[in-house]
Amino acid sequence: MIINDMGKDPALAADYLKLTGDELPDQNHDALLYEAAKAGLVPCLGLLSEQQKSDLLLGLELGSELNAGQLAQAESVPISLEFLQSMKGREHAFEMKFMEQILDVSGALGHKYPYGAKNLIQPVFEAFQTVHEVSRRIISGELDLRQGYDEVLKKRGLLLETIGFRRLSVSDNEQRALLRLLTMGRTADVQQAELFQQAFQDLDRENKDQLIMGLNIDGNANEKAVLPYYMPAVLSDVLETTKDSTEEEKRRALTSVMRYLARVLSSSSVMSPRSLTLDQVPEDQIMPEVPGIVIEHNMLKAREVLGDPDFKRNPEKLDELDLPPPQELIRRRTSQSIDSMSLR
């Protein structure tokens, strides 16, 4: 916890370059800190025993691929959980990293409210509790990656079902896509769930199909899955922006954001032919297996339009916004070449 934010320090990249002659990859701060620690740029690690240091480094490596908050909000994709499968026998490293993430959430806003964990309210705690349970079951081999990921979606579906919303199944691609949207939207009441459902149904067929396909790609072999970074924040923004609007205006705005997400997903997503039935794919088009790729798009770009005073009146202007650039995320447990899959 003490060293975690070092990865956000822009001076770290300069220090790393000076020491190693190499530039740090453009990745998340856990990945940067992991590389810096391996290079010896975190001297306090020398105070730890070899086992403690090994656990800490493994936790940093885990954090570079798996973000508990992203999983809790269905922002990540199933292949992002892949690292957990290599942690059997190293559960202490997982627990230490998970505790750090809990403390990080708990301490947020501490500079404004130093009297308690203001952000760690019951729904947030329960979401992280689900992630912890799912992660341990993946580590033990009880669940595969899709099953573990879907446990998060099923918990959201059960929460909404118990308060009166319709039952949704992860076995149905359309319903599963809606569950991901509801989870990214942190939906906890029937009114918001029905708003999301109606906005989803208001999509034209092409965009709806793109959204359903993109939200159901796991990142398995021969696939490119999209991680829509900060999508929960964008959904929160549009709900806040339209909170005083009519129901129709709220739906139009939310549908517009879903269309933008569909465009982003379709720009980078690739579903493996093996995800289809074999009789749908000509034999000469079946690709040899290569590891899947995760492409991250920073969805905060949508704020360029959401912050426009005219957005509430004309949400369709989001259709004109350029897509955020793609960034391929490093999968450290992948040893095979992925050169055969182009980024675009």
Rank of each mutant, 00 (worst) to 15 (best):
D26Q: 09
A108V: 10
Q52W: 08
K224C: 13
Q201A: 15
G59I: 11
A193E: 02
D144P: 07
V234G: 01
L265Y: 06
F94R: 00
R274V: 01
S86F: 15
L41H: 04
L160N: 03
E65D: 05
D308P: 02
Q175G: 05
Q73Y: 04
E248R: 13
E304D: 13
D310C: 00
E206G: 01
E23M: 04
E91G: 10
L48A: 11
K88A: 15
S54A: 15
D5G: 02
A117G: 01
Q192C: 06
I293S: 06
Q198A: 14
M6L: 15
E240I: 05
P324D: 07
N4F: 13
L321T: 07
A188Y: 01
D310R: 14
G110W: 09
Y260W: 08
V290I: 15
L48D: 05
Q51R: 13
Q129L: 05
Q210F: 04
E240A: 12
N173D: 15
G7I: 04
V124E: 08
E75C: 06
E248Q: 14
E249M: 13
I338D: 02
V190C: 04
L158R: 13
V305S: 07
Q51H: 13
Q73L: 14
F94H: 03
R259D: 13
M271A: 09
V226G: 02
P123G: 06
K38A: 03
T242D: 08
K18V: 08
K301T: 12
P10G: 12
D319V: 03
S337R: 08
T241N: 10
I121M: 04
L32Y: 00
L215P: 09
G46A: 12
K155H: 01
D322F: 05
L318C: 08
F196D: 04
Q129W: 05
Q192A: 14
L33Q: 07
L45R: 09
K88S: 15
E206P: 00
A188K: 02
K154P: 00
L215A: 04
L300M: 14
H29S: 10
P315K: 10
Q201H: 13
V264I: 15
M341A: 11
E50L: 08
D144W: 09
M96H: 14
M299F: 03
A36I: 05
L60K: 03
P309Y: 11
P123F: 00
E95R: 10
F165P: 00
N173I: 15
T255P: 02
K88T: 14
L195T: 07
E23S: 09
V190T: 11
E161Y: 12
V124H: 00
Q201V: 09
R331G: 09
